[in-house]
Write a protein that binds this DNA or RNA. Sequence first.
DNA 1: ATGAAAGCGCTAACAC
DNA 2: GTGTTAGCGCTTTCAT
Lengths: 354, 354
Amino acid sequence: MARVNMANSGAKKAPTIKDVAALAGVAPGTVSNVLTGRKLVAEPLRKAVFDAIATLDYRPNHLASSLRFGKTKTIGIVVPDLTNPFFSGLVKELELRALKSGFQTLLMSSHEEVAEEKERIKALVSRQVDGLIISSSGDSIDPSPNSSINGVPTVLVDRAFTVEGFDTVSADNEQAALTGTQHLIDLGHKRITFLATALGLGNMEERVSGYRKAMAAAGLPDANVVYGGLTIESCRSALEQELRRADRPTAIFASAYVATLGAAKAIRAVDLAFPNDVSLLGFDDSDWMTVLRPYVSTIEQPLEELSEACWEMLQRRMKKRDSPMAHKRVTCALRAREPPRGVVRKPVHPPPEN
Amino acid sequence: MARVNMANSGAKKAPTIKDVAALAGVAPGTVSNVLTGRKLVAEPLRKAVFDAIATLDYRPNHLASSLRFGKTKTIGIVVPDLTNPFFSGLVKELELRALKSGFQTLLMSSHEEVAEEKERIKALVSRQVDGLIISSSGDSIDPSPNSSINGVPTVLVDRAFTVEGFDTVSADNEQAALTGTQHLIDLGHKRITFLATALGLGNMEERVSGYRKAMAAAGLPDANVVYGGLTIESCRSALEQELRRADRPTAIFASAYVATLGAAKAIRAVDLAFPNDVSLLGFDDSDWMTVLRPYVSTIEQPLEELSEACWEMLQRRMKKRDSPMAHKRVTCALRAREPPRGVVRKPVHPPPEN
DNA sequence: ATGAAAGCGCTAACAC
DNA sequence: GTGTTAGCGCTTTCAT
């Protein structure tokens, strides 16, 4: 009664483990054992199975396997914006580590929308991912087991460090901002504007706080925080206004990738030059920053450490789902590229291009 | 005999459609009908089902559904390098379109390795994706139904236009390179070096060809193609040698994103300035290119059109698997940002930073 | 309109 | 060691 697919003879259906078993003259279970290696199989049968697999060009159906086995060996990753090099770099590192451990990654982007993020998480969960790494768009992830995450082992990265109920990994934002601000102060700046992105993001608040602390510690009362939003253009526009004022800042500390690029654009737009007219310190180092002249300095978040920590935590949680929540901070590095202010006095920007 | 999960009372197992059915007092099939909407269900039962779903916090298992239904509503995307803004931009657009049509995307990166690419494709296929969009690392994709692709509807994008047996979408590379080269010639350049990436990539060969044609047409015999490899650093290094020669080129045409950034770095490294010492025309427009001064001009590949074409083709192929292969070219735009050569004669680069 | 039952492809028990 | 069987969660006939 067993229906046997005609091997490759025009039949549309893909061969199954049953077809392989039939051709090799063994039981389906044996084929499975050969493939998964969970049970030893005698050599002659092994060979027969492999031959059958080859002639049928059999591909295991991962869906069926996962359904039965209860594990997908897949982790889901959700980031706000893949075109942001910070996130694409992070994703690349995460992918690498997951792959090395035999996991595949399912990558989704939330486009900085909380609602979309929820949808993506739900989709990932309904696909039975074994774990989740999320850089949240909203800091408002619900850790309750009834939330969209549904009890799937999850690590939060970059955003949302403050949320209890999750393992989290993020940069030591406050310290990084403090160091960065201090660097600008050491360069001789007094009017330093901090270009933040959006209100209510945990990591951003930490950076703002570090900035304020450094300003206060240096006795500089004029802390000035500008919220430029989450796009390059909105950041440019917000800062441009700032730069057109008579008492414009002499230094900008841009708090994230979009802010850094937005700031660079704003500075160009009002035809100032860094570092003579204005210094620019950015967040999230990127390749192109080294081709700007004079260089823009940055606070670099160590992507390898960040992703390493994520992956370790997630693996731990996947093994022991009830271990206590862990929170890890990684230290950022200051990439100071700017010559000391005042050394290059001569304007370096080209004459107006009529 | 039917085992019923205790609703949320500490039981670990996720509720299934059976649990919902039991609680709502209906058959599993009815729950399915409510959920999928494929068959009408009377209002009182509908409500009971929804109530049960809510109280149990039931999530459909997409794996099981896909296994049974034979479709995953998922397409796989494979690109060589997610940190390349051309690809991350393309992926973003593709994701958008897939999502709008009710498809989810499974994204994988091949890291410019043919072997990895094969693995990723196999993984995607074994996950039963309904379709595949691939930007190949090697131009060597095997279209036979027995290949790793295993008959899954596939569209090739950017790379590998020349491969028969696949639907393909790519830029009109030869025309774009011709236009770009012509632009540099119009600017007065005679010694124009073309910075290619790797040999044997179809799209690259087309660009080289466009360059050569433009040079020949202008009666410029000194076509000079340098292969810089697939990383920013290798491109920088290759071009830097070129720029240190006495008869160095007056213009560089960089053939891809990595080449453009590599070229910018090389130009900086040997302390030349564009466009006075050397002009730079790049491929693949990127945000940061507008903050360099003077601007670097680029050939922009229209990501929206590219992805739109991909998605349309893939949808068509998924519906009619035996329709004839289609090949689509999209036209690139020249973003000329450079002032004419010679207008700004005064050197604009800053004095050496001791 | 609803329920019962078969089965998607695979793996884990349990026999032999 | 190897075969047999049950069933993962869902959808879909086929009866009713």
